[in-house]
């Protein structure tokens, strides 16, 4: 049913994990914009370099919700370095794939993880992640 989503995507959409704001979050990352129809906000709690908890809020389609749900599941318990290696592909694979028009949602989810970690690093060390070039198409720049 609906948009040719996998069972896993529908499961994470209908029963999203880790929804809501995280009280006393150590890092928050927001990506996307309302104009494009997708905003993702990822919260992380960090202790001894390990992401002990994570949650999200999302405005967007079924895939946006599902990728956030999966991304927050994937980074929980990981070190910051490990979390940074989680790619949009990994999120997609964990969801048994996404329809081609929805791949940008997984890119946004990856960017949201990076943004949350960056926020944490800036807050604690004053130095964020190195600037990354365009990783794909979040379509927010309108140039691709």
């Amino acid at each position: 049913m609906g948009m040719n989503y996998s069972e896993k995507v529908l499961d994470h959409f209908n029963d999203p994990r880790n929804v809501g704001e995280l009280k006393d979050a150590d890092g928050v990352g927001t990506v996307g914009n309302a104009k494009c129809g997708d905003i993702m906000q990822v919260y992380i709690k960090v202790k001894d370099n390990v992401i002990t908890d994570s949650s999200f809020k999302a405005f967007g389609c079924g895939a946006a919700v599902a990728t956030c749900s999966m991304a927050t599941e994937l980074i929980k318990g990981k070190t910051l370095e490990e979390a940074l290696t989680i790619t949009n592909k990994a999120v997609m694979e964990a969801l048994d794939g996404l329809p081609p028009v929805k791949i940008h949602c997984s890119v946004l989810a990856e960017e949201a993880i990076h943004a949350a970690i960056n926020d944490y690093l800036v807050k604690t060390t004053g130095v964020g992640l190195p600037e990354k070039g365009c990783t794909g198409c979040c379509s927010s720049c309108g140039k691709h």
């Binding site: 959409f13 209908n14 946006a64």
Partner: peptide, 14 residues
């Protein structure tokens, strides 16, 4: 306002 159409359609579909 503040919600997205496809999400609403999927939940209506359910």
């Amino acid at each position: 306002k503040y919600v997205e159409g496809e999400s609403m359609l999927l939940l209506l579909n359910s």
